[in-house]
Design a protein around this nucleic acid. Structure first.
Lengths: 199, 199
DNA sequence: ACAATTGGTGACCTATCGTTCACTTCTTAT
DNA sequence: ATAAGAAGTGAACGATAGGTCACCAATTGT
């Protein structure tokens, strides 16, 4: 029964680890919530730590496939509105996709204990987004949309506030809604601040 | 022996909790590193959770005394250099004070488990700094140093990148040094971006 | 001077942790 | 049809978790 038990275990592990941390989660609860008895899990993983490592492998692979490669770069926006819209689309996705939300949380919780978690957290929360927008802003400078400046610095100034807002999101939809509004307000402010002078 | 055992316990608890989290720390290790046997701790705290709550009380009180009140506001800078210098002084303090570093870590780790930790984390990482710089930027606008805009938005745009950099600091001094340089570079960039037009 | 309190010890308790193992049940290849 | 392997069970394991208790030594108030 249940061919994909391994995947179900990892999914549930992500859910529990993200809520209570690795040390705060026990395999009894993990297996019970999957409708099996705790010893059954050792047919799929040789230890609790092996589950954690497999989960991290999966998270790293997932990140690489979805955000880490150059072909996942969105097109360079051709207006302020397009920049705002693209940003909102990205944030909306990252805030409402349960898996990404849980990944963010578990990386936050385990970053000081696990070196790989720390590296991935750094990409997730900071360098990844910033690198992406470095390319985007360089493109917008080429097009004469925003004023010439260090695109890396602009990307940093743009993505860290948005990242901070994303971090504040929880399950309550109205709170998430308010945060989305702040993202949009900030995005517009940024555009107004850095747009090229109208000639 | 050792009149201030209670304080020593809290200090060591902060250290261990910040490294391994609340669930990942056991009282045997905590007491052993204080040179006593584990049962001894129950003469000072009635449970592990009581230690955590006392620690949180202490952190909340400390924050209120040092950052939370209006009289702790630094004077409004009267130049771009003064803004950069004041920022560097603040960041330097917050990055090198061991207690603050550990507090930041433990709040990061326990924010999803404890409502009060979450609130304090929010102040520590976001709203506190932003509110402070809202006042500062409003003052700088009054003085005609930076261009008129929403001071809250500027404070948000200024403090969240700095906060993100602070979060990356660890014990390695050269890394911390590099981060301090990035803080300074960002601070200057911000000043150049928002300074009032020279007439 | 002495009873009471405080701070600390070591043995012990129960619960729970991650893990193992003999055994069963189900699926699948031959 | 049947042997082999995969998936799951339930009891048990040793280790360790947080916590209690009787006891002791030092300090303290009167």
């Amino acid at each position: 029964m249940a061919i994909n038990t391994k995947e179900r275990i990892l999914k549930k592990a992500l859910e529990l680890f993200s809520r209570k941390g690795y040390a705060g989660t026990n395999i009894r609860e993990l297996t019970a919530s999957l409708g099996m008895v705790k010893s059954g899990i050792y047919k799929h993983f040789e230890s609790k730590e092996a589950i954690w490592n497999a989960l991290l492998d999966e998270m790293i692979a997932y990140y690489g496939a979805h955000f880490g490669s150059v072909e996942n770069l969105p097109p360079v926006p051709d207006s302020g509105e397009a920049l705002v819209a693209m940003t909102m689309r990205m944030v909306d996705y990252t805030v409402h996709d349960e898996r990404i939300v849980m990944t963010r949380k578990v990386l936050t919780l385990e970053q000081y204990r696990d070196e790989r978690a720390r590296e991935l957290a750094s990409k997730h929360f900071l360098t990844g987004l910033t690198e992406m927008f470095t390319v985007i802003f360089a493109g917008m400078m080429e097009k004469g949309l925003i004023r010439r400046d260090d695109p890396g610095m602009l990307a940093f100034a743009y993505t860290t506030p948005i990242s901070a807002l994303i971090h504040q999101c929880d399950r309550t939809p109205e709170r998430t809604q308010r945060i989305m509004e702040r993202v949009e307000a900030f995005s517009r402010h940024f555009w107004e601040t850095y747009r090229a002078e109208q000639s």
